[in-house]
């Protein structure tokens, strides 16, 4: 199939950037979206042009590196997958595809489609961990955890930190990411001890990093490649209000 791509090109952080049109010719429908970009890049390299820079790593949907806004939807419009798992069979011959980087003040563009997501790292550094020494791997069922709690913690832990929630949110809010991390740790006995300080610190860092505020559009949940529920935002709100009231 042949496609027309409208791709955001930006040389460096300070560059103004612009949308550039490329023709993607003879694309195999079994290719992933990233493989399609590889083909376009090979063509660009052959022509002596600068290839399109985009983030990618595992290419099996678990690392959270890919970060492409495809026709206005993070990771494209197929539900519950990352861009690397999006296959070209979902497009038609002759389609025009817009490819843009995540847009948020907290995620500045480094080059083309690559954004700096270290704001997420700083949020994690401010509390997204358990500082107690927990020893080796405990024996199964040595610490009783209710099944609904472990299931819920596991669902929250599915977050790969790709930032699609921020990209999808009309307010560029990071609430789903922070909500998933806060909830995951607060649900488990190892994480419960620091739950109050954790939520206060992580939310403060989130605000300082200039993410927007949640206004309950729930676009994050719909865009999340791991389909993480907005119930974790409500859980974080509960955690935060309880902790703030205590202080």
């Amino acid at each position: 199939m042949n496609l027309t791509l409208k791709v955001w090109r930006q040389k460096h952080k300070e560059d103004q950037g612009l949308m550039v049109t490329y023709e993607a010719k003879d694309i195999n429908s079994h290719m992933s979206f990233l493989e399609m970009l590889d083909v376009v890049n090979e063509d660009l390299i052959k022509k002596g042009e600068e290839p399109i820079a985009f983030d990618h790593d595992c290419r099996e949907g678990i690392c959270g590196a890919c970060s492409l806004m495809i026709n206005g939807v993070p990771h494209g419009s197929e539900k519950g997958i990352t861009a690397c798992q999006l296959h070209m069979r979902h497009f038609k011959d002759g389609d025009v595809i817009y490819i843009e980087p995540w847009r948020a003040r907290a995620f500045p563009v480094i080059k083309d489609l690559i954004v700096d997501r270290s704001a997420f790292d700083r949020i994690i550094q401010s509390g997204g961990f358990v500082s107690a020494t927990t020893g080796g791997v405990p024996d199964a069922n040595a610490i009783p955890i209710a099944k609904p709690d472990s299931d819920s913690a596991m669902d929250a832990a599915a977050c790969i930190g790709c930032g699609a929630c921020v990209a999808a949110c009309p307010n560029a809010s990071a609430m789903l990411f922070v909500g998933a991390k806060v909830s995951q740790l607060a649900l488990l006995p190892q994480g419960k001890i620091e739950r109050e300080q954790r939520v206060l610190n992580m939310v403060r860092t989130m605000d300082e990093e200039n993410f927007g505020n949640c206004t309950n559009h729930f676009e994050c949940e719909a865009a999340c490649p791991k389909e993480i529920s907005v119930q974790y935002i409500a859980q974080m709100n509960r955690e935060y209000l309880r902790a703030a009231a205590k202080q």
């Binding site: 847009r103 907290a106 009309p170 993410f211 505020n213 719909a222």
Partner: peptide
């Protein structure tokens, strides 16, 4: 909230789309 939310995305998307938000939510 509106001021901070506008500031949080200084560069808009060229191709704008939404998935599940509602008209009511976007026009609060």
């Amino acid at each position: 909230l509106v001021r901070e939310n506008r500031r949080a995305r200084p560069t808009p998307y060229q191709f704008q789309d939404t998935i599940q938000t509602t008209y009511a939510a976007r026009t609060m």
